[in-house]
Amino acid sequence: MGLMFKDETYRGDFTFANSPAAIRHFPFPFHEDKYMYAVNIEPHVPGRKGTAYEFPIDIDEHYLADMRDRAITLAEDPLRCQSLPHMLAAEWDLVELLMTSMARDYPEHFSLTRDGDQWHWINRPMKIEDKFTFGNVATLPLRPMEYITRQCQGDFCLLDQRDGDLWMDAGIVTSQADWSLDFDIGMSFKEWHAPVPMAHEIGIFDRALKFLLAMQIGHPVRRLNWTMTINPRLDTAPETYPKWGIDRTTVTPENVGDKVHLRVELQALWRLPRSNAIVFSIRGYLLKMRELVTIPKWSRRMHRVLKTLPPEIAAYKGLSRYQQTTIDWLSKYDDGQPTSLGFFPD
């Protein structure tokens, strides 16, 4: 079955919304009624049909709108896409990973024909068709990473592995939760995670780094991360914070359902074979509180997680200002019944 791509916006009039199928597709991030940092890494293997886990690279009804929003952001600020010169091999590895995944799992929308290093790529929704020589930059209209990630949902960072560390040496980041690729590019694993509170003290990053350094070809992993966003806005970069920061003050008891969004990142990592780099994909999903409460288990749990969230984490995620208003609104949807363990709706 082909996807029906929606015509919607992530800025201006903010017409973004989820269909009932997209709500059930959403990767709800809380497996119990409270939240604390954990390494929470699991194998990125195909999961339940109709969910964000069904395929390694998830394309959904928001595909065209996401790609349009990325193009607008890049037109305004090209520094959201950068790659240090030694990352070219990893860029090509990324082209291969994304094209083969998309063509295999969404054959009605994408196709890839390979004859040695002669590749033929067709992206029907975006009306793109290119024949190119794999490994030859001059045969693509853009640099390899930018070319393919302008056609694939999610942000991507390429991590070079050397000297027992991972270095964020390339990336395209247009829908991030308040961090700057331009500032962080070139940093080591712990350096770019430096602003995250509490997690360093409990050794999260030591364990995560050791695990990732040993990642093997063909064994991708994933984890979920989350925050909240006011208005369905993809571009919440520090660069544009003067534009969107004020949104956080606009939450009222009347508009919580439409304005407050749970924003989940499905972060997946693959070892890239020819470059020995790692790709870190950050695939974001937005869900309005009004959409969330259509799933009774999620409404109860969201309410309880927000109520018990440590204040440091609430501050880091930037939701202190509207946390209570949201809790009050959600309380109407929490009847106090117990919830079942796990992410999925009952």
Partner: peptide, 12 residues
């Protein structure tokens, strides 16, 4: 086993 690289060149 699938290949593992513990002796990569420094691409810089």
């Amino acid at each position: 086993s699938a290949p593992v690289n513990l002796f990569p060149v420094d691409r810089r």
